[in-house]
Design a protein around this nucleic acid. Structure first.
Length: 100
DNA sequence: CTAATGACATTTG
DNA sequence: ACAAATGCCATTA
């Protein structure tokens, strides 16, 4: 049986570039309501490039947090073509990736 | 085992 | 609309 964290990484890996997801959505994809714990898992994410932890934001469209600094996170997202407005995602609904 | 902690979310004032 | 309080669940000490 895989650990909670690995499950998070597994689903998060499915998120394509230029797309974003939320902590809650990831939890939902796994089949739990522990979105809080998802954040904890991301913080310790051992698979840095493989798992795009920077593509995870808050449900309200705000950036959220990042282990290496929020500014860094924003930078990376912008580099992928995601526009950010006032520390929030522009057209969040459009780029939001919902798991199936 | 108990307590403390956090990259969250929702409700309330 | 904004800030504070509450609830939440896995992880870690």
């Amino acid at each position: 049986m895989k650990s909670f964290n690995e499950r998070c990484y597994e689903v998060l890996m499915k998120v394509p570039k230029r797309r974003l997801t939320t902590y809650k959505e990831i939890a939902r994809a796994i089949g739990t309501k522990a979105y809080r714990a998802v954040g904890t898992a991301m913080n310790k994410n051992p698979y840095s490039p493989k798992v795009p932890c920077h593509r995870v934001v808050n449900s309200n469209g705000e950036i959220g947090g990042f282990a290496f600094g929020v500014d860094k996170k924003i930078k990376m997202l912008k580099a992928e073509g995601v526009f950010i407005k006032n520390g929030k995602i522009a057209d969040f609904e459009k780029v939001f990736y919902r798991f199936k």
